[in-house]
Nucleic acid binder design. Structure first.
Lengths: 248, 248
DNA sequence: GCACTAAAATGATATAGATCAAGTTAGTGC
DNA sequence: GCACTAACTTGATCTATATCATTTTAGTGC
């Protein structure tokens, strides 16, 4: 167990030099509802988006704000959450590059029902809803594709409901680790590093439990050699064993 | 406390005479994504749908079945649920007339991830996805409207996640009763009858708890005069008090 | 009205996980 | 290398709710 001295996570430079036009275009092309467009159409569409950089922890929008933009993650990770009156946070999703978020309320106006926070330094593309409506008009295939993505989001949300009501904390956490690995995993000498700063509290808010319980589960996982973990980082060492826990 | 001798719920005749063409058209017009269409367009669209009747408890589709239809509730109520491996059922939603369900997977093929059961006798319109794709092509406004409905569904699903992780069973049940009243409430001399057969088990599966716990909560609500209840039915007598419980 | 049955209520007990309360340490910055 | 602090861990207790085991009853059909 070679003890590390510094976090294995890479630092995101928030200066924006990452986010070239090519990167923007290529990430936009990754969003599944733009995936089928020709390169020239994509080039046209990307012009309507504007890019913004956020530092780790920055609020992109807050629940209750007027919802006038559709956004796409180009680089980094975005956390969607609800702050409750009782002071408990509920993390709804952590988005990887290529995911969209924000508003789809194309008719009338609306207000965000969740908050969006930069989980790492990140680059976000955004488009006003009026512009997006025009895009939909011009490229009808986008409308159909976006429907599918929305349906998929609903599904994963329902899966979460199922897990909350039927699975114990340990299984839920195992599932989260697996999902995060798929989204943000980077292969290193030993195991897969989840390239994303996230704390026990984040994990707890994702699993619908407390920091302490999340911590206990993670300690056990480490004892069993399933993961290696430090402050704000986790690396998966034994995915097979993790899968066993999920399948019970 | 005048004891009732028969269920106050009305019986749905499963013979289909309810479901006239006018009723179909008017219900289809209630689906928010068809709401803005002209009457003549609606008349055209309704022709592409076919109507089926289901008796209470009948399976409309089962999770894992190939998902080739989009459906609309015309009359009655539909329960969407997931059966888990461990034998626990998770109710995802109970749909009132005017709601859509089924598949939106317009490209490629897919499989249902939940099951749909007729909660009461009901009349369902369905359209094949190929036909629906044509409708979308012909009436682009439908596409935009459906996006909004999907976003709304995602939202209510996220609200459910929030409640499961932050609210105690009593509050969750209070919320469910309120929602069901809004969807299926019928004003009677004393209070609002939820016009829908649903058992303690249904309620428990909606709230993510057990039949026994649901039963206890309902007993208390009745003792406090908030509801009046029998087998498979509930009437709200004191909405204000119920709201108090929700707001804590 | 009476018998029958599935649904609901109730009681006793067990338990996962929350809560409360101190510790420990990883990783940073000097 | 050392001190510092937020992140994490660990332990002891408490509690909401599950579980198990019965009993009661609403509503039906005769």
């Amino acid at each position: 167990m070679g003890k590390r001295k510094t976090t294995p996570l890479k630092d995101y430079a928030p200066d924006g030099h990452h986010c070239s036009l090519e990167l923007k275009t290529s990430k936009l092309g990754m969003v599944s509802f733009f995936r089928d467009l020709k390169q020239e159409d994509l080039d046209e569409i990307v012009k309507r988006f504007s890019a913004t950089h956020y530092r780790e922890g920055a609020e992109i929008y807050y629940q209750g704000d007027p919802a006038n933009y559709l956004r796409v993650v180009v680089d980094g990770a975005v956390k969607l959450l609800r702050y409750t009156d009782e002071g408990k946070d509920v993390v709804l999703d952590i988005l990887e590059p290529g995911s969209y978020f924000g508003s789809l309320k194309l008719l009338g106006s609306d207000v965000y029902t969740e908050s969006a926070v930069a989980q790492s330094g990140c680059c976000i593309l955004s488009v006003g809803l009026k512009d997006f409506r025009e895009i939909l008009q011009e490229y009808p295939s986008v409308g159909i594709a976006i429907l599918e993505v929305s349906a998929e989001k609903l599904r994963s949300s329902q899966e979460q409901i199922k897990q909350l009501t039927t699975e114990p904390v340990e299984t839920r956490i195992a599932n989260i680790l697996l999902t995060l690995t798929e989204k943000f995993g980077e292969n290193k000498k030993e195991g897969t590093l989840i390239q994303l700063p996230f704390s026990r509290k984040d994990l707890a808010d994702m699993a619908g439990t407390t920091t302490e319980s999340a911590s206990r589960v993670m300690s056990n996982f480490q004892k069993e050699g399933i993961i290696e973990t430090g402050r704000q980082w986790v690396a998966l060492k034994d995915i097979k064993k993790l899968r066993t826990i999920i399948e019970d």
